[in-house]
Amino acid sequence: MKGLLRTDWIGLLVLVLAGGAALAAARPEFLTAYNIDVILVSFCLTVVYALGQGVMIAIGHMNLALGATGCLVAVAFGGVLEVWHLPLALAIGFGLLLGVACGFVNGWLTYRTGLTSFIITLATLSIFKGAALGITQAQPFYGIPAAVKAFGSDRWGPLPEMLLVALPIVIVIAVFFGRMVVGRQLLAYGGNPHAAELSGIPASRVVILAHTLSGVLAAVAGMLSVARLQNATPSIGDEWLIASFAAPVIGGAVLTGGHLPVIGTCLGVLVVALINQALVMLAVDPFYVQVLLGLLILGAVGLNRLREVRLGTAPAVRLS
């Protein structure tokens, strides 16, 4: 019980439950199957790309090209299905490979140049996004097979079928960072790159692996978006950036690396989805979501920072 209380996500869980309860009390229609479904569908998609950013945050990097990768994979996925009539399994494999390639390029360039991943992924962001728009001429692919569409819209009661992808990914990432040597090496590198290298963890492998993993998760999120929207439109991924940082940060991740709270990230995704849904139900201007998300990020990073200082684990003072 004491251990449970000390985990960093318990407060967040209480917050999510209290928020849900308050919303249900104020608006009884909140607990309808439809609303729960909306929140869960949004959860399935957001948690995948939030973990895609979380993997980067774990090693102290970032991936601005996350949404652009998802977009490129989504339109390529839609394109090979509609134009080349590829079998579904092959198309999914193609999409995943493209995600691997995009992530690998990011990781390789970041490692080889030794520059911040910010500027590298800013460059690849516009390369991938431009390619996605150029291929499609900004028009969506509509020829999505019925199986994909069904996967995006089928439900068991209030549970969307997309959970079949989202939940295993959450578990795999949790096991990868919690139990596996490579995952722990990624975290060690994130906590202190220099010390990790001295203890024999190759920086090249860590950086390239993490970026590739991020690319794969972006690819999965891109293809899930196609299933959810029932078409492959090149605006997929445009709104991922803020939420992809917000969810891990609300969950307790520190941008300097070394820590990836998987359960916290899931709860962070739920917080974002709850806020969205609450504001829709209370008929508030959607731009309040923007303001609130911004404030949440600031509040969460401030809180994480405070906790670090309190625990004496704060990294050396950085002014920039």
């Binding site: 803020i242 941008l255 309040y288 923007q290 303001v291 998300l293 911004g294 990020i297 600031l298």
Partner: peptide, 27 residues
């Protein structure tokens, strides 16, 4: 001011204020 008082990286600070400023302006 937020950057120097919280000592957070300006990336995450301005990521948040980008959302806040723009959302506030539209509201």
């Amino acid at each position: 001011l937020i950057v120097v008082t919280t000592r957070l990286h300006s990336f995450v600070v301005t990521l948040a204020t980008m959302s806040i400023f723009f959302g506030g302006m539209v509201l």
